[in-house]
């Protein structure tokens, strides 16, 4: 058992770091969808101004690397906020905790602004990729469907909500899941901004050890955790796809994303 002593000692810290990874990826996924839905719909808009603004966002973000964007958000946006509006994220968070009388919650290592700008930059990046997915999914629905719905007298919004989106969502699920999986993987980039998530925590352990065997223990542990997170999401998505493929019954848009049967919850 002494062979595994390093990893057993580090286990609680690594699990805490894993929690940071999971929470920041969940926040990133939600925030990325918040960016993606307006941008994706905006690229399909009939209004030239809206369309070109969202195209500019998507093309610029997709054309530059995430690492560069994170660096710009952290070393740029943070300092610009400070210089222009005298707004410091760290101080603001500290004051917020002081107001709640909960200063012990302030992280001992790393910085709040690091994780703030990291999650923001990651979501801003993935918003562009997901916008493309959403646009492609909506375009993949046959045009006749929209025409039929419009000729039946549904409004544009009703057509989108009742006819196009339920079909588009089914097409979007595989690419969306792939993007979510890469998003979870890309939280490893947070180590550049000094956020103590799984990869940076492991790397701090690795750096002080020169033994190859112990280094491999740490790396194997880390890789296995990432594999469990990402492959688990992939398996859930695959199951969802298979079930949706088997039963093309009418399902509510608002329950379709749930990874379990919802017939007991919602009567169709």
């Amino acid at each position: 058992m002494s062979f595994f002593a390093p990893i057993i000692t580090a286990f609680p810290t690594l699990m805490q770091a894993t929690l940071t990874t999971i929470l920041s990826s969940i926040a990133g996924i939600i925030l990325a969808m918040v960016f993606a839905i307006p941008a994706g719909l905006g690229r399909l808009s009939r209004n030239t101004v809206i369309r070109s603004v969202s195209s500019f966002y998507v093309e610029t973000i997709r054309g530059t690397p995430l690492l560069l964007q994170l660096v710009v958000w952290y070393y740029g946006a943070r300092i610009l906020l400070l210089a222009l509006f005298n707004f410091n994220v760290d101080v603001a968070y500290f004051n917020f905790l002081t107001a709640l009388d909960a200063n012990t919650l302030y992280p001992a290592e790393g910085s709040v602004s690091g994780i703030f700008f990291a999650v923001f930059g990651l979501s801003f990046n993935y918003g562009a990729y997901l916008a493309e997915v959403i646009r492609a999914g909506i375009l993949a629905v046959e045009g006749g469907q929209t025409e039929a719905a419009l000729s039946l007298g549904l409004s544009r919004w009703q057509t989108m909500r009742l006819i196009v989106l339920p079909q588009a969502l089914r097409i979007m699920v595989p690419p969306l899941t792939n993007n979510f999986i890469t998003l979870i993987q890309d939280t490893a980039f947070f180590e550049v901004l000094g956020v103590y998530e799984l990869s940076l925590q492991t790397y701090t352990y690795v750096q002080v050890v020169s033994s190859v065997a112990i280094r491999w223990q740490y790396f194997a542990f880390e890789l296995i955790i990432y594999f469990i997170l990402c492959y688990g999401l992939a398996l859930i998505a695959r199951r969802f796809e298979r079930r949706n493929g088997q039963s093309p019954t009418r399902r509510s848009l608002w329950t379709a994303w749930m990874p379990f049967r919802t017939s007991r919850l919602v009567q169709h």
Binding site: I181, Q185, D186, T187, A188, F189, E191, S199, T202, Y203, V206, Q207, V212, R215, W216, F219, E222, L223, Y226, F227, C230, Y231, A234
Partner: peptide
Amino acid sequence: VEFFRNTPLLVQMLAIYSALIF
């Protein structure tokens, strides 16, 4: 394929570069 698709590129790079030092 499943292993390399489901783990971060960054971690793979660090593992290859810093744990194959022999």
